[in-house]
Design a protein around this nucleic acid. Structure first.
Lengths: 199, 199
DNA sequence: ATCCCGATTGACTGGTCAGTCAACCGCCGG
DNA sequence: CCGGCGGTTGACTGACCAGTCAATCGGGAT
């Protein structure tokens, strides 16, 4: 019971932090905001986490490892490179659809923060790029994609295009009705894979 | 003379700020770091700028208005949509090549910072997306691009792909020898325009 | 009933830093 | 030679906030 309650409180704090970071930004918010949002005392945050930074690290690592696992799993399937990239795009976009606040935090505070947290998590972030590059490279081997494009670069703009879509939704620059997510996924994959395939 | 010296000092502070923000990040650096880097007294920063924020705003606005002007000028030319997008990509990449620190600051601290400065400058950022969307839309009108892709979305991933390239260079994830810049530009334009053109 | 120990509380502290301000400098015009 | 004024200086202050810690709570074991 004590054990289960502790797990709950920890989760409660993480979820609250996700909302607060999304709303106010990591730097602009206070630890007391997180505690208030979670409905717990200030000090309890420090019972479960070493520091404010560690709360964000935890949020990032949790979700990013799911992403890495998903990409690797996709890569193991016997499907075309285009289908693999479509599945990757789908996973990322669905992550946003499922929990926009958490994805906003991850993108804004970590993935796109070249200073601060981006630096810290560079290896994990890079692993995602590498996995996508591998998918592109394998596609080239099989003749599905043209060979005169560097897979390393292609993975950057494939990922960049998707992340920019998320940003567009976060900033409310592009529509996010329920079917816009799937349409956007289909269009971006169609365009980039179309450009990567031999004419 | 006094006038000229004042302009120099202001510039000196802006340039120093660009270097310091790039190195340390806007939030992590102190105003005294900027003053030290510029070789002026702490208080002088506040003689020329209302606040630390205003220094960053100034850096951003200066460069971003150049970008907006460049895109508009490109759009006015009588060339294909693909050539226009190529010129836009070229301008952004050359901006980075010419002054990587400033572009790093603009991308990391403003463009990609959905909270804080991103919010503040949303209208100007949006104008760039809109201009690119217009180029894509016009290309569709002329039959150069397929019509079944939303220009608004296409501009997001075109810009996103390029910005991710910049990020890759900032993070030192992809090579940045002198000819990598032009190769990257050519590849990304070839891929995305290739995907946008009718098969 | 009593003890124990992990969970929980929130007041407090120490350090940091943006922004202020009063004094100083040196050029220029009279 | 002097007075004024924009440019320049840097010590200081006030606010803010991450992280600490001593005290309290409460439930399970004996």
């Amino acid at each position: 019971m004590a054990r289960a309650a502790a797990v709950d409180k920890r989760r409660q704090i993480l979820d609250a932090a996700s909302r607060v970071f999304a709303r106010t930004g990591f730097h602009a918010c206070r630890v007391s905001d997180i505690a208030d949002e979670a409905g717990v005392a200030y000090g309890l945050v420090y019972h479960y986490f070493k520091s404010k930074d560690e709360v964000l690290n935890q949020l990032f690592t949790e979700r990013w490892s799911l992403l890495l696992a998903a990409i690797d799993e996709v890569d193991r399937k016997e499907i075309t490179a285009r289908a693999k990239l479509d599945a990757c795009a789908g996973f990322i976009i669905d992550s946003y659809r499922h929990d926009p606040e958490l994805m906003k935090v991850i993108v804004v505070e970590v993935t796109r923060a070249a200073n601060s947290f981006g630096r810290t998590h560079l290896p994990e972030i890079r692993r995602a790029y590498d996995s996508i590059a591998k998918i592109v490279g394998d596609g080239q081997q099989k003749g599905e994609f043209r060979a005169d494009v560097d897979p390393e670069f292609a993975s950057m703009w494939f990922y960049g295009a998707i992340e920019q879509l998320l940003s567009g939704w976060v900033f409310e620059l592009i529509p996010q009705a329920d079917d816009d997510f799937d349409r956007a996924r289909a269009m971006v994959v169609e365009t980039i894979c179309g450009g990567l395939e031999p004419r």
